[in-house]
Design a protein around this nucleic acid. Structure first.
Length: 278
DNA sequence: TAGAGCCTGCGG
DNA sequence: CCGCAGGCTCTA
């Protein structure tokens, strides 16, 4: 569920709450239970022992907890994952898989009902070579994401749709279903348009559409439809800014035509048949 | 480069 | 009950 803006919002909320604080313990629950991969309990124990949090950062949809032990804990929230800060006295909710004990009887908890999420740990110097981060495309909010870089990535594909392109993390990293739909609407590009045949002018529009939709979503602290909450339980407000996502059957605010839904890669795509052209 | 599959929960 | 959900990985 969480895409770049939601993970960025979580990172910003966790940063002042965690940086400088010691981690006093670790609990990994339900050994037969696993996330996308088994939770590396022993490696986490080693990384966390006697360590403090040095930084909280984000890479695409990954949240990174950088520790004074020179290890980095990497968290991916999948579809239903959440990181919550709570007093140790509050009983953990169902589907709590990892708990980092902090000082002052507080805890950082990783909760994920559907278990599509991931917790991994790497020595800091191996992070960029990790299977998770190696091969990620440019993050659209990174300065390296220029219109030229986008055009080059587009032209490296072979006949996939522009929607599939945006969801492919090796091409552009951090965009998911909501913001792919929204960026394409802002750019006036039909989701079934072929990625490698986009003109430089339309690639530039897409570049602007991605930047705009993601920047705005960060400023509204993410989109809350159902599960998404920040670590303190607050919902985001960006759902009110969305132009097409989950608005099938409603009127386009720009041209008045009825918004439609189609299925691509087994995912719903929402678009305006009037504003978006192949 | 499309599909199925992985999971649980929710709303119709 | 069914279909659907903000993700990714593996397969043909």
């Amino acid at each position: 569920m969480p895409e770049l803006p939601e993970v960025e919002t979580i990172a910003r909320a966790l940063r002042p709450a965690l940086v400088g604080r010691p981690i006093s313990g670790l609990r990994v629950s339900g050994m037969p239970l696993r996330l996308r991969r088994p939770i590396p309990a022993r490696a986490l124990e080693r990384a966390v022992a006697g360590a403090r949090v040095v930084a909280v950062t984000r890479r695409a949809k990954y949240l990174l907890l950088e520790l004074s032990s020179q290890f980095v804990v990497l968290v991916h929230l999948g579809m239903s994952g959440r990181l919550t800060l709570a007093p140790a006295s509050v009983p953990p909710s169902r589907h709590t898989h990892v708990v980092f004990a902090l000082d002052r009887d507080e805890e950082l908890r990783f909760v994920d009902p559907r278990r599509f999420g991931l917790v991994a740990v790497y020595p800091r110097e191996q992070l960029d070579l990790s299977p998770e981060l190696r091969g990620l495309g440019a993050d659209p909010l990174d300065p390296a994401f220029t219109p030229e870089a986008l055009l080059q990535a587009l032209q490296a594909t072979h006949g996939c749709s522009i929607k599939a392109f945006l969801l492919n993390q090796r091409r552009v990293a951090g965009v998911g279903n909501i913001y792919a739909c929204e960026a394409l609407f802002l750019a006036g590009i039909h989701p079934q348009a072929s990625a490698d045949r986009l003109s430089p002018a339309r690639a530039r529009k897409l570049h602007r559409g991605l930047k705009r939709t993601l920047t705005r979503a960060v400023s509204y602290r993410g989109t809350t439809f159902r599960d998404y909450r920040d670590p303190l339980g607050e919902s985001g407000e960006n759902q009110y800014q969305l132009q097409v996502y989950m608005r099938e059957g409603e009127r386009c605010k720009r041209c008045g035509r009825t918004l439609r839904r189609l299925v691509q890669q087994a995912r719903s795509t929402f678009y305006c048949p009037g504003c978006q052209r192949v």
